[in-house]
Amino acid sequence: MEDLIYRLFPYAIAFTIPLLITSLGGLFSERSGVINIGLEGLMLMGMFVGAYTISQTEMHYPGTAVWIGLLAAMVFGAIFALLHAFACVTLNANQVISGIAINMIASAITVYLARFLTGSGNVQIIRGLSRYTIPYLSEIPVLGRLFFTQTYATTWFVLFILAASTFLLYKTRFGLRLRACGEHPHAADSAGVNVYLMRYAAVCISGACAGLGGATFIVTLSGEFNGTAAGLGFLALAALIFGQWKPWGILGATFFFGFASTIANVSQVVPELSQVPGIYLKTFPYVITLIALVLSSKSSQAPKAIGEPYDKGKR
């Protein structure tokens, strides 16, 4: 049993990281007052751009191709998110419908482009990111084996982004303003904050994060773009809600969900887990999020102005 946990842990962490960064992206957008149901689509865009960039560059720059791919995924994720920002912030469109449109546009256009560029709907990369064990730290009893062996560089990169984002959101002027736009945009506006600009920035950050999440999934776990994000973006959305729109909350939630999904994913190949009913493990994140919503219905932590287009003239 103990050995099993040691073996599962690296996979669970690898599964958690794309969820975490995507969820963090959703956090930025929703804390600024813009609902982002398009996380799945933004992630898919990141998967496609990441996989395609890597497949094109890895011949020439074998070592750095992965990082070029991750960067490209972030950039294109942010650009693609502009579409959502434009609809929600400038045009005051319904944020849910715009998010759904983002998902549908992403799943149609990525496969369209994949077919056009490669002939098939799939984009494969030859080499993903390699795992490595951190010297010294991995020798710490228990924790070392759990957290510092067989890790990916992206894991530490994403955790760094999480820490930096927490600092950005809670300790800087930018973060305070961003959160104010999600709680009471009119008050923020009268204090001299440009609500439109803040929301644009937040939605773009969420696109970059979700794009990074998608590309991270490609370079660590899957190794190919196959036209679907398989609900990872929605799982990240569930984690955002279950984590009550707080950075450390979503860290806990994504790890919780990531671990459950990992057990369900590997239960076919690990004999000790063959009796695990996958249906409960896979539906568990969604069921528990619903339960959390019911329990927190009296004291929801959701941003107050979420989903409301900002209208300067309204009182």
């Binding site: 579409l83 609809a87 045009l91 469109a93 319904n94 419908i97 715009s98 759904i100 449109a101 983002i102 549908m104 546009i105 799943s107 149609a108 256009i109 496969v111 369209y112």
Partner: peptide
């Protein structure tokens, strides 16, 4: 699918 998705986007806006 792209056309349908874009129609949703424009219908939303």
């Amino acid at each position: 699918d792209t056309i349908i998705a874009t129609i949703i986007y424009f219908a939303a806006t």
